[in-house]
Design a binder for these strands. Structure first.
Lengths: 380, 380
DNA sequence: ATTTTCCCCGAAACCGGTTTCGGCAAGGGC
DNA sequence: GCCCTTGCCGAAACCGGTTTCGGGGAAAAT
């Protein structure tokens, strides 16, 4: 192993350490007849440096193009000015479509403070823990953004135990020491249910996402609250869980439509799953927006291209990233976690997938049964 | 500004630098009765340390859970063990769907060597330059992955001038000092043309992507080569450029189909644009896979769900990321750029969007004209 | 038996910053 | 006129590693 390193070093034949030509703090100091300690304090705004000197130093540093090495500062300050993000990339990963926007938001806010973002990926929760531990051990980041919060989240346990700052995108069970930013998915689901009830729907189904995540919990609560506000009974038969993919969403829709009294309206916790209803409807010859109403959540671009375009509660993912990054920096700088808790609403994008029911549940049931018999007959 | 920092420090009230409880190299040394210099050399496999000592040290370090601080090493070695990636997120960004896979590949390979990835985003080429300069100045990365290479690429100029290692995802005009990994888009386009010709098509159109990128250049060449191999003439009227979005792809298709002798087959440089042909075909009442044939490129997931599913040349983006990261590390360790140039083929996924032409160009032309007149008539 | 060689390792410098400590000079109070 | 602040900066320690240099001791050569 050493051989490798040695020969490599030999080949590059560069001066043993940093880039040549780089201007160091000593250079700035020398050019001003000061010591590097003074320059450092001046640049960092210490109060025991004369205002005039401070200005002189800053001007000179600017002119000479001096930029302190982040890792050289880090050795003393213990801060690398970087935040960590571990993206869990499963087989069917639902934040894939938002990743670019999210990163854009995070890096924009981070860059504004001259921070950077260290990204890692993982394929499973266990892998996430391992990777997180490595980043922590090597201190590659001063704090972490934890997306897709689980109800009981091992990442939180790890970081809390080590006393490392973090911020959640989402909420979690044990809130002690937790800062977070989250979207009010519960409000969206509540509004969706109320909206559909207002259109005349009486049987409104709810298809939830992966139940290990916290967002599923709060969205479910919101849906229930919506029913309550609308004066509708909560029927467990009308609720499905763990619809992650479009296929899942389709399967859930089919099951619900085969009920004796099927729902005429559907609230989906995710757009991706909601698109499954479109396929189920197509198979059954039902028209979305009249025979069936559906409201989704996320603001997935594909939803806008569906026929009819999907009514949804859209999340500003870039903004979420920005807030998370900014808040994490505050947290690392010492702000109390209790003061860093922010919730933002999702925004309704009313499109064509919901409206007054064209059929009663009874009529819908006969229609479905007729079609199903037909399909079965064909298949046999 | 200082006030802020000061009060923040006071609030956290942590020991002034690194985490308490962290085991440092001195601790390992003390526990073995050695000096930290010796421990460092032992861990880094220097040949002037006795084999037995080396083993003893490594075992102790392992047992004590010692992990050197990356930035503490960096101050002397000049290496932070991190690579940089700047993702340009424009309005219609075509690598968005691949970003997750790409990051997965990059971080997998990087993590295998205990490297990390620093990600930044930008909104324009100018922004990219600024961001790149900042990362370079602060030495947040030892080298960079440059995706979406342009024919003349300012990022290359900047890094070359500063002597900072980089690797291209794609190729560029001036290859001096450049290492790269790329997909043989030219071969894919050539094969696509030959394949369509083999199915009996005589007029094969080509709809290219953004012409500022190098990939457009090579894919165009491949298409021309394919025509030549098939013994077909190259007709400039059958070629379109800069189709970035699905809308662009649709517009290009419509223009081409209005020709006196429209093409019966289309080679698209990107799947995203190719999906535009589906919309154009739908409007004109033409069936894809018989009336019109189309072959795309990228392996976009949406293509599989189109009706009929899109035949395409699929790119293994995760693999590309892995190779790029691994090669960049080699480059940084001193390998010559000339030895780090790798090309991989795209893989044909034959689906239902291509086949023998059901109509001649002449018949197709009358069909289109009839339909167009109809639409115009309706619109007026 | 002495000298030379070589193998190991300790001591100390070094990397590029930050932070502590102390001292000098000017200003203020008595 | 003297002492005590106060403001400002230099000197030096420090952070956690890496790398250079040199020397002690055992083995090999003479």
């Amino acid at each position: 192993m050493m051989q490798k390193t040695h020969s490599a070093n030999a080949r590059t034949a560069q001066p043993r350490s940093a880039r040549p030509g780089r201007v160091r703090i000593g250079d700035v100091a020398a050019s001003l007849g000061l010591t590097k300690g003074t320059v450092s304090r001046a640049l960092n705004g210490y109060p025991d440096i004369a205002e005039s000197t401070q200005l002189r130093v800053k001007r000179a540093a600017e002119a000479m193009g001096y930029r302190p090495l982040a890792h050289a500062q880090a050795i003393r300050t213990g801060r690398v000015r970087a935040m960590g993000l571990i993206v869990e990339i499963g087989e069917y990963d639902s934040h894939r479509p938002f990743l670019a926007e999210f990163l854009a938001g995070v890096t924009r806010a981070a860059g504004a403070e001259s921070w950077t973002l260290t990204v890692a990926t993982s394929v499973s929760p266990e892998d996430t823990q391992t990777t997180l531990a490595r980043l922590v051990d090597e201190h590659k980041a001063d704090g972490f953004i934890l997306p897709r919060t689980r109800w009981s989240d091992p990442r939180v346990d790890l970081l809390r135990a080590q006393g490392i700052p973090f911020i959640l995108y989402g909420r979690t069970a044990d809130t002690t020491g937790c800062a977070w930013f989250d979207i009010l998915g519960e409000d969206a689901m509540r509004d969706a249910a109320v909206r559909l009830a207002g259109q005349g729907h009486r049987r409104i189904a709810f298809v939830n996402g992966g139940s290990e995540y916290n967002f599923a919990r709060v969205r479910h609560e919101g849906y229930l609250k919506g029913l309550e506000e609308a004066g509708l009974p909560a029927d467990p038969a009308l609720m499905a869980t763990d619809a992650v993919t479009t296929e899942d969403g389709k399967a859930a829709a089919e099951r619900l439509l085969r009920l004796d009294l099927p729902p005429t309206a559907f609230v989906y916790a995710t757009d991706k799953a909601a698109l499954g209803l479109y396929r189920a409807a197509q198979d059954l010859g039902l028209r979305i927006g009249s025979d069936l109403s559906v409201i989704g959540y996320d603001g997935l671009p594909e939803g806008a291209f569906a026929q009819p375009p999907l009514t949804t509660y859209s999340v500003d993912t870039a903004h979420a990233g920005e807030r998370l990054a900014a808040m994490l920096i505050e947290r690392i700088r010492g702000a109390a976690p209790e003061d860093l808790r922010e919730l933002a609403p999702a925004r309704l994008i009313a499109r064509g997938s919901d409206g007054p029911p064209a059929l009663s549940s009874e009529k819908l049931a006969t229609l479905v049964r007729a079609k199903e018999g037909h399909i079965q007959g064909r298949n046999q």
